[in-house]
């Protein structure tokens, strides 16, 4: 498959800078660990927030870090789409007989994010062991659903940002509110924030769908029917549709105006 060839090429490229990739991976791990320490320190002072203890947050940190670094590694093409536009590489994508999205997926990969990914996976495993959950097949599925939903939501936001970068190269910091914002918010239960914030990150950007909603199903409790919590990751994935539509519309616009 073509995608495998792309991956192989990226691996070969980064092997040319082996030391650099390893060092960057390490630095990404350091970044993740210092964020983890911040969460830890906060729970040292306060012990709980809302209904959550440190281990609930730890699981969320694991999920978010894993999902984020996965997206940053494999969906780098959308993440740094502004570069693709500015360097004129986008023109090149148009003159290849392959779907544009497929090419963007293959265009860039950043394996140094795997340092962070590793931290995320280890933290997730520790948290799952420490949380007292009575496991069932459904719960395992919901846990996996959290990861999948997280990937889809972050990817959608990256696609949204990529679409915006066709119109402007200056306003891109704005999209950070949603990408980095949903990352930082999601370490803690989305329902502890002020109403407008928690609504924004539940209904507009469905961060809650891989945050406290499915976690409520895992640890039990909650006021709604259990299946609502269990299925919440599926609802969250719907965000992909408008984001992709917007991106395709932006591409059409690019063909109309160029840069």
């Amino acid at each position: 498959m073509l995608y495998q060839k792309y991956v192989k090429m990226h691996i070969k490229s980064s092997m040319q800078y082996r030391l650099n990739t390893v060092f960057l991976s390490f630095s990404q791990a350091v970044v993740a660990v210092s964020e983890l320490l911040a969460v830890y320190v906060l729970f040292q002072t306060f012990t709980t927030v809302g209904t959550w203890t440190f281990y609930d947050s730890l699981l969320m940190f694991g999920v978010v870090t894993t999902v984020f670094s996965f997206c940053e590694c494999f969906f780098r093409g959308y993440d740094s789409f502004a570069e693709i536009v500015q360097s004129g590489e986008l023109d090149r994508l148009f003159i290849r007989p392959v779907n544009i999205h497929y090419q963007i997926l293959g265009a860039k990969m950043e394996f140094s994010k795997l340092g962070k990914f590793f931290v995320g996976v280890v933290v997730s495993i520790i948290a799952v062991c420490k949380l007292s959950i009575t496991w069932s097949i459904w719960k395992v599925l919901v846990l996996l659903g959290m990861f999948v939903c997280g990937v889809v939501v972050i990817l959608s936001l990256m696609i949204l940002g990529a679409g915006m970068s066709i119109y402007t190269i200056e306003n891109l910091e704005f999209i950070n509110i949603f990408t980095a914002g949903s990352k930082d918010l999601a370490y803690y239960p989305i329902n502890i924030y002020q109403k407008w914030l928690s609504r924004l990150f539940t209904y507009v950007i469905p961060v809650a769908c891989f945050n406290y909603l499915p976690l409520t199903y895992l640890v039990g409790g909650g006021t709604l029917l259990p299946w609502v919590y269990a299925l919440s990751p599926c609802f969250g994935m719907l965000i992909m549709i408008p984001c992709v539509l917007f991106f395709n519309f932006s591409l059409k616009k690019y063909q109309g105006t160029g840069t």
Partner: peptide, 8 residues
């Protein structure tokens, strides 16, 4: 390796 150093 400025990227890694400054990130740390």
């Amino acid at each position: 390796m400025p990227k890694g150093a400054s990130a740390i």
